[in-house]
Design a protein around this nucleic acid. Structure first.
Lengths: 115, 115
DNA sequence: ATAAAAGGCAACCAGGAGGTTGCATCATGA
DNA sequence: TCATGATGCAACCTCCTGGTTGCCTTTTAT
């Protein structure tokens, strides 16, 4: 289990850095891309056309899950991973904050120059 | 020098994964946060209140620069780093693409159920 | 002219990340 | 019930990363 305490009800505030880090890998990014069509997939299915081992894919999926980007549920003998858009929204909010601060700075500079 | 060819005019298409990876570190995230107020800062200034060495900060700044998140320019004896919002816009576009794909999937599911 | 400030360079180190292989376990279709 | 498919677990390996220390170079203030 992760040390991020994903079991704490509601407050699943996966630090932005962790989410960014999870997205900072080509393989994981392509997994996200494929899962973002809404269709849950098994590990075997996801590693079928991959150049790496099923075990490697499993590790990547674990990273994505701990970051809150995907969710898994066991269905019989296979575990299906599905995309979780909440995490995306979380870092989108973070980016908005950075952009807002930047825009504010631009605004102040502009009004200063005009004065 | 990086192998990303940051000198190619205009087409500074820093792969999303590299940008995400650069943001996937608390220290670098806080550097970005501080620089996003638009005020360029020297390395010494940025590492003044940091818990780590100036050298470590330098390395982080290099990572951010290669990802296109900051730009540096030598001013006398100090080199000033400034925030570069273009990289943020680049990954925001990527996130939009993922979200769009997700929304489309939801839409198809909805119309299927309603039928 | 020189001491102090600001950086750059390089070597070095510990730990983590990405991958692999081997083997055990659980579920299921014949 | 039994072979196969889908995973889980664990050990192991290599390379990258985050950090450090030591020392040299360039500027600048006095």
């Amino acid at each position: 289990m992760s040390n991020v305490d994903a079991s704490r009800a509601g407050a699943t505030t996966h630090a932005p850095a962790a989410i960014f880090a999870a997205l900072g890998d080509r393989t994981r990014l392509s997994l996200i891309h494929r899962l973002s069509d809404g269709r849950p997939r098994s590990i075997a299915s996801l590693s079928a056309d991959a150049a790496i081992t099923r075990q490697a894919v499993t590790k990547h999926l674990n990273v994505l899950e701990e970051a809150g980007l995907v969710a898994s549920s066991r269905m019989g003998r296979e575990s299906r991973y599905s995309f979780r858009p909440e995490a995306i929204e979380e870092i989108r909010a973070y980016l908005d904050e950075v952009s807002r601060q930047w825009d504010d700075a631009l605004g102040r500079l502009k009004s200063f120059v005009e004065k």
